[in-house]
Each structure stands twice: as C-alpha cells, then as structure tokens.
Nucleic acid binder design. Structure first.
Lengths: 206, 206
DNA sequence: CCTCCCACCGAACGCTCGTTCGGTTGGCGG
DNA sequence: CCGCCAACCGAACGAGCGTTCGGTGGGAGG
C-alpha cells in the first residue's frame, strides 16, 4: 500500500460516517473500523475528531470550488455561466453526496481558526455565484438583494442535492436545465424555456 | 402555577435547547435546567428524550399547518395563494425560528410510529404547496415535476428562514413578495413584478 | 389527626464517548 | 546482526449521557 493511501482511506471513511450519522453522532471508533484501523491506530494519523472534520471539509470545498472554476472557464455568456453554477453544484451533489451534506450541515460545528478558514472557503464559493448573478441582473439590484438571490438559488440547489432526487449524472444534467430555467424565467415560463437554455449550452465549445 | 403550565414550559425549553444544540447534543439535563426542574422531575412529565422531540415536532407542525390553512382560506387567486404559502412560511420562520429549525433538521431522528406520524404531517404540509402549484401551472406538468417544484420552493424558503435574514415581521412580509415574484416570474423579471404582486395581494379582503 | 398521593428530587447505574498510554511489531540503515 | 523508528494495537481513564430508583414534603380527603 502506497504511503498516503491509508490517509486517503481515513478521510473517505470519515466523510462517509460523518455524512451518515452527523458529526456528533459519528464515533471515532466507527470511523476507525470503517477505515480498517484500530481506534488507537487512527490517532497515529490524525490529532482528534475536530481535525478530522476540518480535513474533510477543507478537501471537499477545494474540490467543489475547483470544479466550479473549471466549469465557469468554459462558459461564455452570463446565462451559460449560471447554468454552469447550477450544473456543477448538482453534479457535485450527485457524485459527492456525503461531502456536500457535511459542507451544508456540519461546518458550523467547527470553532476557532479552523472554522474561520472553512468559512472563508464557503464565502469564496458564494462570491462566485454572486458574480454570475450580478452580470445577469437587468435591474441593477443592490449587493444585499443579489446576495439574497444567491442564497435562494443555493437553497434550491441544496434542496435537490440533499434529497434523493438525483439518480444518475444524466438526471443531474437534465435537472440543471430545468432549475436554471425556473430561476431565470420563473415557474410560469420555466418549462418552455428549459429546452432552449439547454440548446444554447450545447452550442458552446467543449 | 396552573396545571399544564409546567408542561408548556417544558416543551418550550425543549424546543429552544434542541434547536440551539441539535437533538443529540441537547442533553436532558440542560432541558430540565432550562425548564426549572430537576432531571428526575422532568421524567415525571415525559417518558424520555425521544418523546420530547416528538411532542415538540407534533405541536409545531400542527401550528404551521393551521396558520397555512388560515392564510389560504382568505386567498382568492392562485397567485395570492402562492404568496400566502410563502408569507406564512417566512412569518413562521421569523416567529418560531427554533421550531422550524427542528422541523427541517431533526425530524429524521425519530423512529417507529412516531416518525411515521410526523412524516405524515410534513407530507400534509407539502401537499398544500403542491396543490397551489398545480392550479398555477400553465403547462400541465406531471405530478413529479410539480413535486420537484414544491421542493425547490421550500428549499428557497428554508434557505431564508433558517439564516438570519429576517430581522422583523415586516422583513418577512416584504421578502415574501420578492420571493414570490422570483419564483413566479424568474430572476430576470422578479424585481418589476414584485411590487405588482404585493399590490394585488393588498386588494384582497382582510 | 391520619392517610394518601401527586409533584418532585438526589444519587446512582450502565453505557458510550474522545483521548491517552504503554507496548509490540517489522523493515531498513549502518 | 543491532538498533531504531514508523506504524500500529489493547486496554484503560474520566467525563457525560439517558434512564431509574428510592425517597420526601405538603396539601387534599376522610
């Protein structure tokens, strides 16, 4: 077994167990067992339970932000950038359901400088969404209103991503168009606009 | 102290402590202290921790549903009924923030018939939202699509209600119009439509 | 005045938790 | 072949948990 592989396994196990049970209910013993180590063996690799939560959050947020940046880099128009935000979030929610659950639910349980660091990364993610809405906004909304909008959008996305709506990556992709149309054009206009939004997106370069 | 008053105080204390700490982190000792009883004294009134969670959820959901029904009863058009759903939810979120937090976060921790009972009440609430969207839908969407829509709407609402967006009941009322317009007409059209939606609502009878 | 019972409490039980400590390997540099 | 160190493990510690048990006091009923 390559060095570091154990470490990866531990973080994976921690992510799964914490997502399933919630941080406080997830016991270090169960994480150790799930990673294939003894209780004391786990403490050879990590300093404590809080550090475990931090490590999981830190890595997951880095991945999420990296995926979003990749998606935004290839998106030309504001509409397609919005679609990129939505699609990336839902896709991440499908592939890394456990990680997203922890990001949304358990990050507040951190404290001290670790909490600040994670909070900053969450903020960094939010800011990207804010920028997309800003360039899309035809009404010169204030920063506060745009922030509300971002929170509303993310609320919608997490509402989907946290529940068992997504059964395949295809689901995630289709649903992204529908959610994008709903957010952009509203419930009354969403259905007819969903297809045209998706078509516009397919015209972009790979 | 009137009989039953103690009981009310216990439920209030349980709701506050559970909302603040989360169910598993909320200790029976702290709830008892917060209600002004000893640990053993609390057990004179309730059978155990799970029952406490159930009682809080049951009462809170009854109140939420009752408030929604009252609001829907006075709303004539589908648009105003949607606004009633949104406003009631946000208003409840402002006045009973602790209760709403528990409804959204902790209900899954129940098990057995208690869980089923609470699940049914949650479903009953969701169904009311579904009906409003159905009569509003111009595209004959399928039941599944409408259910998704309801979940998206509730995701948005809870995204607001669980975070410190609401500072007053006026905030809740204003925000309800904006969210209603955003959901109905979309991000691009929401701002100009928000005022007209609110005006339409003010024309209805008290 | 005696009795009973409701409301309530102090103390303990058994359990699980996060964490620590004192080993014991097995492979590798010298 | 020796010594060392990284990589583990079994066992225990103290704290906190939900729950229970054996009371106690005081007001109402007889």
């Amino acid at each position: 077994m390559a060095i570091g592989e154990r470490y990866e396994g531990i973080l994976k196990a921690a992510c799964d167990v914490i997502a399933r049970r919630g941080f406080h209910q997830a016991s270090i013993r169960e994480i150790a067992r799930s990673a294939g180590l003894s209780l004391a063996g786990l403490y050879h690799y990590v300093g404590g339970k809080d550090e475990l939560l931090f490590l999981v959050l830190d890595r997951s947020l880095d991945r999420l932000i990296e995926e979003l940046d990749d998606a935004l880099a290839g998106a030309r128009t504001p509409e397609i950038r919005l679609l990129a935000v939505i699609r990336t979030h839902l896709d991440f929610g499908f592939r890394q359901a456990a990680a997203l659950k922890i990001i949304n639910r358990d990050w507040e349980l951190l404290s001290g400088p670790r909490r600040d660091e994670i909070s900053a990364k969450r903020q960094s993610y939010l800011t990207r969404g804010l920028a997309v809405l800003r360039e899309l906004d035809p009404h010169d909304r204030s920063g506060d209103e745009l922030l509300s909008g971002t929170n509303l959008l993310l609320g919608m996305l997490n509402g989907i991503a946290t529940r068992p709506f997504l059964r395949s990556r295809e689901d995630a992709r289709t649903l992204a168009s529908e959610v994008g149309a709903l957010f952009l054009y509203g419930f009354l206009e969403a259905a007819p606009r969903s297809a045209e939004l998706q078509a516009a997106d397919n015209r972009r370069p790979a």
